[in-house]
Amino acid sequence: MKILVTVKRVTDYERKVKIKPDGSGFETEGMNFVPNPFDEIAVEEALRLTKEHGGDVVVVSIGPNDATQQIRQALAMGAQRGILVQAGELDSDAVARVLQKLVEKENPDLVLMGKQATDDDANQAGQLLAGYLGWPQATFASKTEGLESAEEKAQKPGVKVADGWASVAREADGGIETIKVQLPAVITTDLRLNHPRFASLPGIMKAKKKPIEEIPVASLGVDITPKVRVLKYEEPPARLAGVKVADVDELVNKLKNEAKVI
């Protein structure tokens, strides 16, 4: 099977971004970029699925030329080839419409995406893409056996594919829902689907020779005018600094008499 996996280049989630004084964006100095962590889970799942069923994993990123680094990281994990759609910052809707074009070109059996990008926290692109394509969707894919299971240690996929359908356990409100979607489909990953592998040294060496096709976004003929415009960024209201209490007695006293919450 052929799997298209999306990898977004995002700001390092371990570091706080700095807002520009005019609120128009973020300071780029000292900024570090990583592959969106949910997308690494998507790459891992794609590799497990193609190991079991055969086929290729194609990694797509939409972003600046530097996003090649994040594509290479996915290639080093084991994906076969990459596509970089050269573009500025797009909203999830434009991303979905660019991906729709690529899906029409590439004809994958499955598109695996992260459930949310950790920079914009939108949680939209996969559902939008499925909607545009008229494909079924299974969002927030998880592993029923858990992340400590024998299946996980044996690197078995959490998504089960058979007879042209994928069975997906989803992290829903109040429990785990299992659905089946007919391929081709869009699946988005949650945290409990797998532990993504680290790239090995030979993997990194091999990745250097793997092809990455560069496509200027303008050549796709997709209208990328944002449907959601960012007007400004600002700091959230700060919580007032609290106090340290000396012991349990003081804590109970404060909760009863100061905060009056118990």
């Binding site: 939108a122 939209q124 939008l128």
Partner: peptide, 20 residues
């Protein structure tokens, strides 16, 4: 989780922009 699953797909069907 349910709203996040359904609404972007509905937005695509309606050609609407969406804020999450």
């Amino acid at each position: 989780a349910h709203g996040k699953d359904v609404m972007p797909r509905a937005a695509a069907l309606m050609g609407a922009g969406m804020a999450s």
